[in-house]
Write a protein that binds this DNA or RNA. Structure first.
Lengths: 349, 349
DNA sequence: TTTAGCACTTTGGATAAGAGAGTGCTAACA
DNA sequence: TGTTAGCACTCTCTTATCCAAAGTGCTAAA
């Protein structure tokens, strides 16, 4: 059966209406408020047909219709109308990122907060994770008691939460030299390439083999996203949506998003080609919790990957709003980070 | 009216029973299972009397009795029996902290997780916040593009999330010298003392006044706990407790603990004299959410303050278990951090 | 192809009845 | 004076029933 234009129109009305009201949509409602040319009986026939096609479902005979996941997917692909943000929202975005181009880590939290505030959904984010991330320099900073802080500067971010034990015999001067040697050794390499030279490097370091080994372990550990790279903002926002009036749903939701590993799974395996990505629960996307939708966008600016950001919420999500917000945030980031970098583009051959 | 021994005994039974079962306790239950010497009618008389004294309340005439906040307070002060942890739990604590003496920041998360796991409540923690925290050294590390990472080593922790803009004219060598000068300038000072010398220091730095000013701002900002210093673990644990079968309660709870500021308020204003601190909601402790209890302990070892840790949950909390866990965790921390430091005690005169 | 009309289904709210649990009180007892 | 058995009373919780409201599916006519 082909989808007539009227069927599409009606499907769009049902999805829009259900997203707005969270109440199953009846034929009478459609005929009276949205499609005044025809009678409710006609709409009923169309609705029955759309149900047969798998786009609509009914909880019970007299309960109106509700879109199926398939309907949402169709809606996003073909029916949805692009929205615009209010002047106020646009200002909010811009002011939030102004003067924040500096360090990517803080930016993740800010971006996540903005997205959660504007969409009214729980926001998830995962920091930059770029196979091409290249080491620029390493430094070891004495912190007393035979401990040093290993700071790794890459073209994307500054990694600084690894502490390494060093022999107490190593003085400050010696440490500084070692820093320079190690820095030279890895400069220009991607984090993934570190393990290729591991053997060779280790064999050359007789005396400080132990230290070197810890440095290499640290470098390797950053190839996977860490808990610190995963941010969750606005978990309490789910209470604003009626599907979470049921305690069981809240419990499932919170249990999933309380685990950073789970969040990483949900938003982690992006296809890099796609800028905005919608996953709808119970539909082959095994990672996404049942009855949840996840909309994410992967941002980059000035050649830098800036991470993946998005929202997680009920399937009945305001996709128009969410996608509009994600797009605008992306543009704002590009403006700010991009302009920051445009006069100092670095090209790691 | 005086509290007879029997009244105390009965109050203890009521609190214990209610903590275990979450069901209002009846006179019959007490007389049959816990106080087999007397009849339920006798117990009833005592219960009526305890209610008059303000220790018990009834939801309705035929509903059994429930302890009042006052009863919990009395229970904690006088009635509660010290518990012991299982061999398994003790092992878990010890293994979790082994080899973790290094950096305090990671320790906060680990400790918080252990507490939440063992008690089955949501754990809150706030990092070291010590008025006596003294600066040992400062370093500025070039990160490219006119940015430097400011690393502050104190006797308690290593602070490393401030980036500072420096004139691009400043070379690496110059930076290193500046680091040393600034380091000398503040060495031995507490973070609170920084603002006393602010004027003087700034006036001496003509050329790099801007950089210096940013350094000082950073130092001052660390005197207050930051969001990063506040950790929340196991928010989903509340679903394991029947008082949170009501969505409204969950909403209140989550809304409060979603705000780091609120958490800081709740656990922040400890009286340093008290090692273990119990706050019961709706009882003058205005910060604590209605119907919630917060039990916290402030740890220190080897002269270092290690932060404040605790749990937040329903008033009907297993105080014995919670306090036992907090005490054991405290001892484990003392062992590990203390022994680490014992041969390198530093005494900042 | 569209529509009016109507029977049918399901939900949700209101009401009532009865069982169950626990108390308070009284009177008897040690 | 303290303790206890007995019993009436209160309140909740569950189940059943009824009724109105909402929405659909189907049929027959335009």
């Amino acid at each position: 059966m082909k989808m007539s234009d009227r069927k599409k129109k009606i499907l769009q009305i049902v999805v829009d209406e259900y997203i707005n009201t969270a109440v199953p949509v009846s034929s009478k409602n459609i005929a009276e408020k949205h499609l005044t040319g025809v009678s409710s009986a006609t709409v009923r026939n169309e609705l029955a047909s759309l149900e047969e096609l798998g786009y609509l479902t009914q909880f019970h005979t007299s309960g109106g219709r509700v879109p199926s996941p398939q309907a949402y997917r169709f809606y996003i692909e073909e029916l949805m109308q692009k929205g615009n943000l209010s002047e106020k929202d646009l200002d909010y975005i811009e002011n939030s990122f102004r003067n924040k181009a500096g360090d990517v880590e803080h930016l993740i939290k800010d971006v996540s907060k903005v997205i959660s505030d504007l969409t009214d959904y729980t926001s998830v984010a995962i920091g930059p994770h770029d196979e091409e991330e290249r080491i620029r320099s390493l430094a070891m900073l004495p912190c007393g008691e035979g401990k040093v802080l290993l700071v790794i500067v890459t073209n994307v971010r500054i990694l600084r939460d690894t502490f390494i034990d060093v022999p107490e015999t190593m003085g400050d001067e010696e440490l500084r030299n070692a820093s320079q040697v190690i820095s030279k050794l890895f400069e220009g390499k991607t984090l993934l390439q570190v393990k290729d030279v591991e053997e060779k490097v280790l064999s050359e370091f007789g005396q400080y083999r132990q230290v070197m080994s810890e440095v290499i372990e640290a470098l390797k550990s950053y190839t996977h996203p860490r808990d610190e790279d995963i941010v969750l903002t606005g978990a309490e926002k789910i209470f604003n949506h009626p599907e979470y009036a049921d305690i069981e749903n809240v419990k499932n939701f919170l249990t999933v998003i309380s685990s950073k590993d789970k969040i990483a799974e949900i938003i982690g395996d992006e296809d890099d080609e796609i800028q905005i990505n919608v996953k709808i629960g119970s539909s082959g996307d095994a990672d996404v919790p049942e009855d949840c939708s996840v909309v994410t966008a992967t941002y980059s600016a000035g050649g830098k990957n800036l991470g993946t950001y998005g929202v997680i919420g009920p399937i009945r999500m305001d996709y128009t709003k969410v996608i509009t917000v994600l797009e605008n945030v992306g543009r704002a980031l590009e403006d700010i980070v991009g302009s920051k970098n445009k006069d100092k583009e670095d090209d790691p051959k």
